[in-house]
């Protein structure tokens, strides 16, 4: 083999760092939206309705003359919040289910895993579309629903980690020292599972964001006038031909954020290859 032994910096790692910087910048911009947005999110400018992108309105304006850049920034708050917080919910449930399942074994394990398999068998987007239609959720409720539909992957990962970790000597030592199961699960085993939890959470952020966008795109997610990238697309759908920028920018942001999250996930796992 003629591969040189000295390797450059792994390209995945580098791409992951750039992506992380981008995502961080976006989070900061979203958090600072009220301070930096050029207009108020609901400010109407009836003289400049449906205006194409220009120096005054970088991303153009919508049918009510609202500035699209402002709405994209405020939409970022909602979409990113759903992505990040639903990933937290998913991780919370997934880690609990996976840890208990892997540590306890036996009947509890198989019962929990059958439930996990069942949840994985139901197509996620249609399931969430029905759930949203049924409960007509506010943003916090939407976060909860999306999170509750996304814990299965991390549950499986954490279970696998616990299955191998619990056979190690330090667990037997902790037992011998009189530690109770709950303490072993949380204090002794959880730190070992952290790397895989982080990776699965990263992927859950991207998935949660895309799910929010898809739900709002179908009119069952975040309801106007609260802007989210998904419901901005939903509203732009009908005027695609005359005002394409209304659909272009929100979608572009969904795409770039999802791309950033996926690259971060890939960068985190690059060492395993």
């Amino acid at each position: 083999m003629s591969t040189p032994r000295v390797r450059r910096v792994r390209p995945q790692r580098a791409a992951g760092r750039v992506a992380a910087a981008l995502l961080l910048a976006l989070i900061v911009l979203a958090a600072a939206a009220p301070a930096i947005a050029p207009y108020a999110p609901e400010a109407l400018d009836l003289a400049h309705r449906r205006a194409a992108p220009s120096p005054g309105h970088w991303f153009g304006t919508d049918e009510l003359g609202r500035d699209l850049l402002t709405r994209v920034l405020f939409g970022a708050r909602v979409t990113l919040a759903v992505g990040l917080l639903s990933a937290l919910v998913a991780a919370g449930v997934g880690v609990t289910v996976g840890a208990v399942s892997g540590y306890a074994g036996g009947f509890l394990d198989s019962a929990l895993m059958r439930f996990t398999d069942a949840m994985l068998a139901i197509p996620r987007l249609p399931l969430l579309m029905i759930a949203s239609a049924v409960v007509d959720p506010s943003v916090p409720l939407l976060i909860l629903i999306v999170g509750l539909a996304g814990w299965m992957e991390s549950a499986r990962l954490v279970r696998a980690e616990y299955l191998t970790l619990k056979e190690r000597e330090f667990v037997a030592a902790a037992h011998a020292a009189g530690a109770r199961s709950a303490r072993i699960i949380v204090r002794h085993l959880l730190p070992g599972a952290v790397p895989s939890i982080v990776v699965s959470m990263t992927l859950a952020v991207g998935r949660g964001m895309l799910l929010e966008s898809a739900l709002s795109f179908f009119g069952v997610g975040v309801q106007p006038p609260t802007p989210s990238w998904g419901n901005m697309l939903y509203q732009a759908q009908t005027t695609m031909t005359s005002e394409p920028w209304l659909a272009l920018f929100p979608g572009l942001f969904i795409f770039l954020t999802a791309l950033a999250v996926n690259l971060i996930g890939d960068g985190l796992t690059a060492g395993d290859e």
Binding site: L233, M240, T241, G251, F255, L263
Partner: peptide
């Protein structure tokens, strides 16, 4: 390989509903 890696990441991250709208706009309209 590098080119297709970049493209496949783009493909995985693409919101299908948005991409569909764009294609309609370009190729149909």
């Amino acid at each position: 390989d590098r080119l297709t890696t970049v493209l496949s990441f783009a493909g995985i991250s693409l919101p299908v509903f948005w991409f569909g709208l764009l294609l309609q706009l370009v190729f149909a309209v």
